[in-house]
Design a binder for these strands. Structure first.
Length: 928
RNA sequence: GGGGGAGUGGCGAAAUGGCAGACGCAGCGGACUUAAAAUCCGCCGAGGGUGACCUCGUGUGGGUUCAAAUCCCACCUCCCCUACCA
C-alpha cells in the first residue's frame, strides 16, 4: 500500500500550482457558451466563518461542474468593504477603518485560498477602493441627471446607536429596530437623498423573466404592496383639499369622520384655538415616541379632535377631523376617511371616542347590521345602503375574488364628478441612501452659496474619502469637521461651496458589484462593455434569504434604472455582435437564484456540578465547584447547589438544580474548580455550559472555526461534509462528530485508488455490475449538481467507493473496468473535493489538470439493470420478491407473481380480480 | 391579523403516486491488539415469534386510488416573513 492521505501536504501544493498556472482565469471566448456563477460577496468582518464556507463551497462545486460540462465559467469574489463595524473599531480601538478593513481582507483572502474554490482573483473587486467607489458616485450622478435621485426633507428612521438614518428595508421587526445593531429606531426630520425606487414598483413585483424561488418572489411582491382603490378629495371648511386613498370607495357614504397622521401638514391649519393645546401635546408626544411605543400598548387607539371639519364630497356631509397615530404619514396620503362600520381600526376608534357609525353595506347572509350593538366592523361584501342613488348596488366580489363590483361603479362616478379617480397605491418607499457616517462612498454633491445644489462634474470623480479625520464618538460624521473636505469651489460659478458630508448606504455598493467583477480596473466606465456583452447577466446567483427585500430588491432596481439611463447601450451592441438575443437581456441582474440555509450552533448539555459555599440572598458564593458524572447526581445539602450549568457570565454561573429551579452561583479567584481531566487546578473556563441550537455567535461561544477544521482534516473534508450533511437550502445545527463520515470516505478513496489493480479471475457478472454502478452514480451525481442536491450527490460518490472496495476485496473485475471506474470516480469527485481528486488523478498517471477534463458521459444502457427484484403485492402489501430478467414481459411478470409462493400463501385460494404490472418499478399488485 | 414553509429511526437525512428509511453519524456484537485508537466483519424503526414469517409505522383525523410520506379536506405543532397599509 502507498503512503497515507495527508491533506495538509497535498492541499497547499495544488493551491500554489493552480495559482501559478492561472487555472481559474476566465476570459471572454465567444466560441464557447458562458456561465456567470455568483455567490454573495462577504463583508470583511475579520475571519471567515463556517457560514461563508457553507455558502461558497457548494456554489463552487456547481461552478466547477459547469466548467467540466463545457461552459466557460466566471466565478468571481470580492469584498463589501464599506460599513459600520470598521468605523466602530476605529472609535473603540483607535485603528483607522481603512487599516482595519485591509487587514481583515488580507486575512479572509488568505483563508479563502485554503478553500480550494475556483475564484478568479484577478477579477476581485473591493468596494472601498477609490477605483471602485468612483463608479458608485458616477452611478449616483447618472441617476441624478435622469431624475431618479432627489433630495428631500422627511421624517426618516434614525438609529441612535449607529448614529445614522436607515432605509425602510433596514428597519426590522415588531419593535422597529435597526437591522445591524438591534436598537429601536427613532424618527428624525432630515434632508436626505433618495432614489426613486417607486418608479419601478410594478416592474419589481414582476418576476416573469427570472427563475427565482417562490418565497423570494412572494416576499418582494408583498414588499411592493400594491393595492387598488381610489383617491378621493375631501375639503376642509376653508376649502383646502384633503386627499385620501381608499380601497373601498363604495363605503364613502359611511365616512363619519376623518383622521390625519399627526405629521400631516394641514394639522396646523385646521386646528381650532380650543383644541390647539391638546393637538400640540399629542403631536409632540407622537414625535417623541419611537415606533415601539406606538404599537406597545396593545394597539389601543389614541387620538385628538382638531376642532376642524371636512366636507364629504359624495354627500356634502360635515364630518369632524381627528388626528391619530394609527394613521401613518408614510403610507398613502397620510390621511384617511374613517368608515367605522366597515373597517375594524376605524370601528375601534369610533367606539373609544363615541363617534358615529353608519352602515352602508348590508351583508347578504348575516343578520342586518345595527350600529348600536355591533361588536366589530363588517369588512365583507353585501348590498349598498344609505348611499343615495347607489342604494341597492351590489358590493360583492367577482368570481376570482379580486374585484368588488361596487368599487368600479362608484369610482367611475367619482371621476365623472371630478371628486376622485381610480388609483393604485404602493407600500414600497423610495430608497433612502444617505448615511451620516464616515466609512462609505461620499455622495458627489455640492451646496453652492450662489447656485444651490450642484453635482460634482464627472471629470472630478472620485470625490475621495479623506484619511486624516478624527474619530470621536460624537454621533456626527467626522467628514463634517474636516475643513479640507468640507470646503470647495462651485464648478459652475467658482464661488464657495460645501460638500455633502453624508455617505452612501453600502447596499449601493453591492447593487452593481457583479458588473465591476467583469473588469475591476477598467477606467472608461463602471465595467467594460466588451466583457459585459459576453458575461452578463449573472446566470446563477446564490446567497441567503435574508436579503430578499433588501439587496435583491436594490440590485434589481439598479439594473432597471441603469437600463433606463441608457448605461447598457454599448453592452447591448457588443452582445448583439456576438449573436445574442438582447430582448430583455439587461432587465434583470440575475437570471436564477438559489437560497442556501444557515449553519447553526451545535447543541450540548452543560456539566453537572456540585457547588459548595454560602448562600447570600438568592445566590450561592461558591468556595468549591466540582464537575460530577451526570449519571450519578448526589443530593444537594443546605450549603450546596447541584445541577446543570446553563450559562456563564464572567465569574457567575447559572445552574438549574434537579428541582428545576435556577440558581445564581458566584465565584471568585479563591474558588476551587474540580473538573475531571483537569483536576483541582481547573478554571471556570473548563466548566462547560449548556448550548441550545441557535445562530452561531461569538458571545454564545458556539462558533465553529473553519481554519481549525482545515488544519485538522483538510479543506476537502470540510467542503464534502458541508455538502453532505445538510440539505443545502435548509442548513441545520453543526455536528462535530458527523465529519468523521467524510473523513473515512476520503481515506478509503485514497486507499482504494492507491491499491494494486485486481489480478484475480474476472467474473463477467461482477465486471458488468461495477460498470453499471459507475453509470448509475454518474447519473445521480450529475442530477444532484444540477438540482443543488449536493447531499445525495456525495452519497452517490460514497456508494461508488463502497462498490470499488467490494470489487477490490472480491478481486474479480477486469483491469479495464477497474481503471475506468477509478477514473470516473475521480472526475465525479473533482467539483466536490478538488485537491484529493487532482492528487489522485496525477498519481494514476493522468495529465494535468483534472479540473479541465470533460465531465463523464452517462450511458443509460450500461446503467440499466439486467436482473431486477420483482415485488409481488397482494392488495398493496408486499408478499414476495422474486428475481427476474429486467426486460420481463408483462404477461410473464404477472404469471410469475401469481405463481410465487408468497402470493399463493396470501391469496387464500381466492381469485384475483385485477392484476396491475408497473414495469418501471418492477412491481405487480394483485387485487383480490 | 395577513402571507409562506416544514413535520419521516436516537441524530443528519433519502424516497414527489409504486419495496419507507439510500448515504452517513451515534450505538450494539464480533475480529485484530498487552491495551486503547485506527481498521475490518456483522446488527441497527417498534412489537410479536425458536424460525420462515406476522402486525404496526412518515405530526393527528378523514378522503381519493389497485397502490399515499407523496394528491385532496380539516386539525395540531414548530419555523420564517410581514403588519394599525386605509
Amino acid at each position: 500500500m502507498a503512503d497515507k492521505y495527508v491533506p495538509q501536504e497535498i492541499e497547499p501544493r495544488w493551491a500554489d500550482r493552480w495559482e501559478q498556472d492561472g487555472l481559474y482565469r476566465s476570459e471572454v471566448d465567444p466560441d464557447r457558451p458562458k456561465h456567470y456563477a455568483l455567490t454573495m460577496l462577504p463583508y470583511p468582518s475579520g475571519d471567515l466563518h463556517i457560514g461563508h464556507w457553507y455558502a461558497m463551497t457548494p456554489s463552487d462545486a456547481r461552478a466547477r461542474w459547469m466548467r467540466m460540462t463545457g461552459y466557460n465559467v466566471l466565478f468571481p469574489m470580492g469584498f463589501d468593504a464599506f460599513g459600520l463595524p470598521a468605523e466602530n473599531a476605529a472609535i473603540q480601538r483607535n485603528i483607522h477603518p481603512k487599516i482595519w478593513t485591509e487587514q481583515n481582507i488580507n486575512t479572509m483572502r488568505r483563508q479563502m485560498r485554503t478553500m480550494g474554490a475556483m475564484f478568479d482573483w484577478e477579477r476581485e473587486a473591493v468596494t472601498s477602493e477609490p477605483e471602485y467607489y468612483q463608479w458608485s458616485q458616477w452611478f449616483f450622478l447618472q441617476f441624478y441627471k435622469n431624475g431618479l435621485a432627489y433630495r428631500e426633507g422627511a421624517a426618516v428612521d434614525f438609529c441612535p446607536q449607529c448614529n445614522t438614518t436607515l432605509a425602510r428595508e433596514q428597519v426590522w421587526g415588531d419593535d422597529r429596530h435597526c437591522e445591524r445593531c438591534g436598537t429601536p429606531v427613532i424618527k428624525k426630520d432630515l434632508e436626505q437623498w433618495f432614489f426613486r425606487a417607486t418608479n419601478y414598483a410594478e416592474e419589481l413585483m414582476e418576476h416573469s423573466h427570472i427563475d427565482w424561488p417562490e418565497r423570494v418572489k412572494t416576499m418582494q411582491a408583498n414588499w411592493v404592496g400594491r393595492s387598488e382603490g381610489a383617491h378621493v378629495t375631501f375639503t376642509t371648511e376653508d376649502g383646502d383639499p384633503i386627499e385620501v386613498f381608499t380601497t373601498r370607495p363604495d363605503t364613502l357614504w359611511g365616512a363619519t369622520f376623518m383622521v390625519l397622521a399627526p405629521e400631516h401638514p394641514l394639522v396646523e391649519k385646521i386646528t381650532t384655538d380650543e383644541q390647539r393645546a391638546a393637538v400640540d401635546a399629542y403631536v409632540e408626544e407622537a414625535e417623541r415616541k419611537t415606533e415601539i411605543d406606538r404599537t406597545a400598548e396593545g394597539k389601543e387607539k389614541t387620538g385628538v379632535f382638531t376642532g376642524g371639519y371636512a366636507i364629504n364630497p359624495v354627500n356634502g356631509e360635515r364630518i369632524p377631523i381627528w388626528i391619530a397615530d394609527y394613521v401613518m404619514i408614510s403610507y398613502g396620503s397620510g390621511a384617511i376617511m374613517a368608515v367605522p362600520a366597515h373597517d375594524q381600526r376605524d370601528f375601534e376608534f369610533a367606539r373609544k371616542f363615541g363617534l358615529g357609525i353608519r352602515i352602508v353595506i348590508q351583508p347578504d347572509d348575516a343578520d342586518d347590521l345595527n350600529p348600536d350593538n355591533m361588536t366589530e366592523a363588517w369588512p365583507g361584501e353585501g348590498i349598498m345602503v344609505n348611499s343615495g342613488q347607489f342604494d341597492g348596488t351590489s358590493a360583492r366580489y367577482s368570481a376570482d375574488g379580486k374585484k368588488n363590483e361596487a368599487v368600479g361603479v362608484v369610482t367611475a362616478w367619482l371621476e365623472e364628478q371630478g371628486t376622485g379617480h381610480g388609483a393604485v397605491n404602493y407600500r414600497l418607499r423610495d430608497w433612502l441612501i444617505s448615511r451620516q457616517r464616515y466609512w462609505g462612498t461620499p455622495i458627489p454633491m455640492l451646496y453652492c452659496d450662489q447656485c444651490g445644489v450642484v453635482p460634482v462634474p464627472e471629470k472630478d470623480l472620485p470625490v475621495l474619502l479623506p484619511d486624516d479625520v478624527d474619530f470621536k464618538p460624537t454621533g456626527e460624521s467626522p467628514l463634517r469637521s474636516h475643513e479640507g473636505f468640507l470646503h470647495t469651489t462651485c464648478p459652475d460659478c467658482g464661488g464657495h461651496a460645501t460638500r455633502e458630508t453624508d455617505t452612501m448606504d453600502t447596499f449601493m455598493c453591492s447593487s452593481w458589484y457583479q458588473l465591476r467583477y467583469l473588469s475591476p480596473h477598467f477606467d472608461g466606465g463602471p465595467f467594460d462593455p466588451e466583457e459585459g456583452g459576453y458575461w452578463l447577466p449573472v446566470d446563477q446567483y446564490t446567497g441567503g434569504i435574508e436579503h430578499a427585500t433588501m439587496h435583491l430588491m436594490y440590485t434589481r432596481f439598479f439594473t432597471k434604472a441603469m437600463r433606463d439611463c441608457g448605461i447598457y447601450e454599448p453592452t447591448k451592441n457588443v452582445a448583439q455582435s456576438m449573436g445574442r438575443d438582447v430582448e430583455h437581456l439587461f432587465d434583470e441582474p440575475m437570471l436564477a437564484l438559489y437560497n442556501q440555509g444557515m449553519i447553526l450552533g451545535e447543541p450540548r448539555n452543560g456539566d453537572i456540578v456540585v457547588a459548595t459555599g454560602e448562600f447570600e440572598g438568592g445566590k450561592l458564593n461558591a468556595a468549591r465547584i466540582q464537575v460530577v458524572d451526570g449519571r450519578d447526581i448526589p443530593p444537594a445539602d443546605a450549603s450546596q447547589v447541584v445541577g446543570e450549568v446553563m450559562s456563564r457570565k464572567e465569574l457567575v454561573l447559572e445552574v438549574v438544580g434537579s428541582d428545576g429551579r435556577s440558581y445564581v452561583v458566584d465565584t471568585d479567584e479563591d474558588t476551587t474548580f474540580d473538573v475531571p481531566g483537569f483536576g483541582t487546578d481547573a478554571t471556570i473556563e473548563q466548566v462547560r455550559y449548556h448550548l441550545d441550537i441557535e445562530k452561531m455567535s461569538k458571545s454564545k461561544g458556539n462558533v465553529v472555526a473553519p481554519d481549525e477544521l482545515v488544519a485538522a482534516h483538510g479543506a476537502d473534508a470540510v467542503r464534502a461534509y458541508l455538502m453532505f450533511a445538510f440539505r443545502w437550502e435548509q442548513g441545520g445545527p453543526w455536528d462535530s462528530q458527523g465529519i468523521q463520515g467524510v473523513i473515512r470516505w476520503l481515506n478509503d478513496v485514497w486507499d482504494v485508488v492507491n491499491s494494486d489493480t485486481p489480478n484475480g479471475a474476472v467474473d463477467p457478472k461482477a465486471d458488468r455490475s461495477l460498470n453499471r454502478i459507475v453509470h448509475q452514480v454518474i447519473d445521480k451525481v450529475t442530477d444532484g449538481l444540477r438540482s443543488f442536491g449536493f447531499n445525495t450527490a456525495v452519497a452517490g460518490l460514497m456508494e461508488l467507493k463502497n462498490a470499488l472496495q467490494d470489487a477490490r476485496r472480491d478481486n474479480n473485475v477486469s483491469v479495464e473496468t477497474w481503471n475506468s471506474a477509478i477514473e470516473k470516480l475521480l472526475l465525479l469527485m473533482a467539483p466536490f473535493t478538488p485537491f484529493i481528486a487532482e492528487e489522485l488523478w496525477a498519481r494514476t498517471g493522468h495529465p494535468y489538470s483534472i479540473h479541465t477534463q470533460a465531465w463523464p458521459e452517462f450511458d443509460p444502457e450500461i446503467a440499466a439493470e439486467e436482473e431486477i427484484t420483482l415485488v409481488v403485492q397482494i392488495n398493496g402489501k408486499v408478499r414476495d420478491r422474486i428475481q427476474v430478467p429486467a426486460d420481463i414481459s408483462e404477461d410473464d411478470a404477472k404469471r410469475l407473481a401469481l405463481e410465487s409462493e408468497g402470493a399463493q400463501r396470501h391469496m387464500d385460494g381466492k381469485q384475483p380480480r385485477k392484476v396491475i404490472f408497473v414495469a418501471q418499478r418492477g412491481m405487480v399488485n394483485i387485487v383480490v
